[in-house]
Design a protein around this nucleic acid. Structure first.
Lengths: 358, 358
DNA sequence: TTGTAAGCGTTATCAG
DNA sequence: CTGATAACGCTTACAA
């Protein structure tokens, strides 16, 4: 039945890898031209009932599906979108991926994933390799200047997540880190905290924003704010720095971490060091990773809308790929909110009379 | 400089998307043929110093990198490998991905990722779509029979993770679930537990294996073993079923969950219900997700070598893609080990004198 | 409504 | 050593 008229240059007939059937096989089986098959399959173009039936039948019989590479060569579309995260093991990023997955699947786009955590893969080369295989990219606004510059110069559709990348005309999705930190700061201020530590991660641009927000919340309160810094936004690092943060001469009554992973490490170690949380010290983080619910006390945090961020970013990217000019730039703000749990508690009133709403 | 001699059929000269430079541009700029450029770039073939220099220069000047789709069309390689997980948000799977990432990056393979969690994407269609875009696949041995059958019939290189898929000649990597559960069971038996509950997840084939291992460990101990089942291997489900498991008439003195997520939910809810863990009841899970360290008490679990599994699976797949016949089938066993933490504790000796090693 | 044929950017074959 | 040139499987003018 399915005989190729062209002499196949290397057709392992009986043995070996059976060649997947091509559009030509279908055309031949249906007794039509390849153009007809292609149009029937792609464009909504109609044909005589008989032709349509024969083609459909042939497609079914041969289990035909088009070769994405061949198709991509001429359409210029790969059918893939890339998503670059800074650490797959951070639940914040997995939620982001989860959020991006659904709209991608709906648009029949495949997810080409890359993790550029510490020693895993160099940022720029990874990006460059990816960009040849995707129609668009969702990347962290925390990418290096070098990487962002390169992306800006290319004409690859890109959506940044995490916040608006510094001074650049592009498309982005994320929370207002400063405002979010200020919200958390106000919560702590209302609780009566006055000796604060911020355990930042200067590897992340938002760390500075969050620090500023925190300071802002305590302006005029007479509170002391100190700052630490870890080398990696991980629980291990939170553990490592815990004693330095918690046991110093002027011990803090509240500690805010750059993210929940660090906070988790601090929380665990605080208890190991004999401190009662939140009685001796309040601890809070950022991102609202689900595991913050399972510590005791449960972790107070700021929900940064990880999953929603992923979803919005993907929708934006899809619009952008589709040529929607509105999606070319602009920041889409995701609403953050403080999630108060057991790890933060009021101090025995030090100086009252400063009722702040919320 | 870079002028095309062929009349470009649709070359948006000044405005619009600038066309990425092709091998033809390079050849022209270097004054050689495309074949020469290709051989210089791919095969280790040598040329006169002059030619090599001119080509290298042209490549640099034009920032040329080959079009993966065009290349793929003729080599038959996509340069991608697919990895299919059952839920990105489960740290077990993210560790698996992390483990697979490094060898993939080393082999310059991109990771095409798919999450087939509950309502996200239908299994078989996802697999079929993926398989046209990858050179090989790493998938869960928990895929449906239908999906596994389809994969078996295709000639796609596949490595299964999680354990050997039922009755099939294929390549796989994972722990021995029965033996691992038996190890955990022996730990609990030695602690003196005699009223056990297993919270399984019948959606996973290993759940049954683990149940059998548990039973095996308690053979002849006179212990009572009961079994529950959740609809999803998640912390939420663990919480939901907690009261049913923990508050029944003959309350258990130890509960083993199918995985750590369920265990986390059980642990949290147990405490909410006023039970002291491990004093009133011991709780243990599977997978050794990192967040089990941050609960209090910390969670006893079985390390299933998630990251190592991912790494070994990827190495196997790469070998398999490279045509290594040894990698075509066979199971690679990953060693599991019990991680004893605070959530399991000995009962006040009920019936002693059964010293079991380890 | 259908078919013909020209490419898309590579690599591989085979001459020179 | 180097260069023509024929594929790879598909879409899309352009014809019929």
């Amino acid at each position: 039945m399915t005989v190729n008229s062209r002499t196949p240059i290397a057709a392992p007939e009986g043995a070996g890898r059976r060649r997947a059937s091509t559009i030509r096989d279908v055309a031949q089986a249906a007794g039509v031209s390849t153009a007809t098959v292609s149009k029937f399959l792609n464009g909504g173009q109609r044909f005589t009932r008989e032709v349509e039936e024969r083609v459909a039948q042939a497609v079914r019989d041969l289990g035909y599906s088009s070769n994405p590479m061949a198709r991509g060569m001429i359409t210029g579309r790969t059918g893939n979108v890339g998503i670059v995260v800074l650490d797959v093991r951070n639940p914040h990023f997995t939620s982001l991926i989860r959020g991006a997955s659904r709209p991608a699947a709906e648009a029949e786009l495949n997810l080409l994933f890359a993790d550029i955590a510490e020693g895993l893969a160099p940022e720029l080369p990874t990006l460059q390799a990816l960009s040849r295989r995707v129609d668009g990219l969702i990347v962290s606004a925390r990418l290096s200047d070098e990487a962002r510059a390169w992306l800006g110069a290319s004409d690859m559709p890109v959506v940044y997540y995490g916040g608006p990348p510094a001074q650049q005309d592009c498309s982005s999705v994320g929370i207002d880190n400063r405002a979010a930190a200020a919200m958390l700061g106000r919560h702590l201020r209302e609780l009566g905290h006055r000796r604060l530590r911020y355990v930042g991660f200067s590897g992340a641009r938002w760390s500075q924003e969050r620090w500023l927000g925190l300071q802002q919340a305590f302006e005029g309160s007479g509170a002391e704010l100190h700052r630490h810094d870890v080398n990696e936004a991980s629980a291990d690092e939170g553990e490592r720095i815990a004693s330095e943060v918690l046991l110093s001469a002027d011990a803090p009554d509240a500690v805010v971490a750059y993210n929940d992973l660090i906070a988790l490490g601090l929380l665990g170690q605080a208890q190991a060091l004999g401190l009662a949380v939140p009685h001796d010290v309040s601890i809070a983080g950022f991102d609202n990773i689900v595991y913050g619910r399972y510590t005791s006390p449960a972790l107070t945090t700021v929900d940064s809308g990880s999953e929603q961020t992923g979803e919005r970013a993907m929708r934006r990217l899809i619009a952008r790929i589709g040529g929607d000019p509105a999606a070319r730039s602009g920041h889409e703000l995701i609403a953050a909110r403080v999630i108060v749990r057991g790890s933060t508690l009021g101090r025995p009133a030090v100086s009252r009379g400063e009722g702040r709403t919320r």
